[in-house]
Amino acid sequence: MAATEPQRENETLARAIPERIMTDGDADYIDEVFAPDFVEHNPAIGEIHGPEGFREYVFEPFRRGFSDLRVAVEDVVAEGDRVVLRVTISGTHDGPFMGIEPTGKPLTASGFALHRLAGGKVAERWVLFDALGVIEQTSTAPTA
């Protein structure tokens, strides 16, 4: 079944987060993508509110910690007002990240994000990613 025009628009908007915002570093586009009352549910970092919350707790830490950050979209499923993305995060830990000083180590992690769109913006997201893998790969402590 072919995607409808609203589904294609929703997919384009959801893909802008990993591609245009996270990979390209376009912080100004955050306000265009997220609704003012946006909520992200993320068990690794807690609940995030609004475009500023996304900028402060997701965008800035990752862009500061990994200057060559790349978030590649591997799969997309769009239906109605929902879009699911499966992504792969990669980069070099060359800046401070969540209290961890730069290690110069490469990072690769997988994740999923379910987006609910309303009024042409992302209203809500549920995010799961390999947070333990990120911590292990950015840590200087030996792993088991």
Rank of each mutant, 00 (worst) to 15 (best):
F66K: 01
H93M: 07
L107Y: 10
I30L: 13
L107W: 09
F38T: 08
F59H: 04
T92C: 04
A35E: 01
P106T: 06
A113M: 05
E79A: 15
F97G: 04
P51F: 04
Y57E: 06
R82S: 12
F34W: 05
I45S: 12
S139C: 03
I100N: 07
I135D: 03
L132K: 10
R86P: 01
M1I: 13
L13A: 05
E40I: 04
Y29I: 05
I135A: 14
V39I: 14
I89A: 08
G65Q: 04
H115W: 00
W126T: 12
A109G: 04
D28A: 15
V134G: 02
L85F: 11
V33M: 06
D28W: 00
Q7R: 00
T88S: 13
R125P: 05
A78N: 01
I89C: 03
V87C: 15
Y29S: 13
P6R: 02
E32S: 13
M98E: 13
N10E: 00
G95C: 10
N42L: 10
T4G: 11
M98Q: 06
E5V: 07
G133W: 04
F112S: 12
E40Q: 14
P102T: 11
G46H: 08
I21Y: 02
S139M: 11
R20S: 13
L69R: 01
T140E: 13
T138V: 14
V76S: 12
A2D: 06
E79Q: 14
Q137V: 09
L69G: 08
P102K: 06
Q7L: 00
R86V: 12
G111M: 06
V83M: 05
T143V: 15
P96Y: 05
V83S: 06
P51D: 02
I100P: 01
R125C: 10
V73K: 03
G120T: 10
A2W: 06
H115P: 06
G95A: 04
T4N: 00
K121M: 06
A109V: 05
A44N: 08
E74V: 14
R82H: 02
A14M: 03
A16E: 12
F97R: 10
R82W: 01
D81I: 03
D81L: 02
D26G: 04
I17H: 00
A3H: 07
E74D: 15
I48D: 01
A118S: 14
R82G: 01
G133H: 05
I21V: 11
D28V: 03
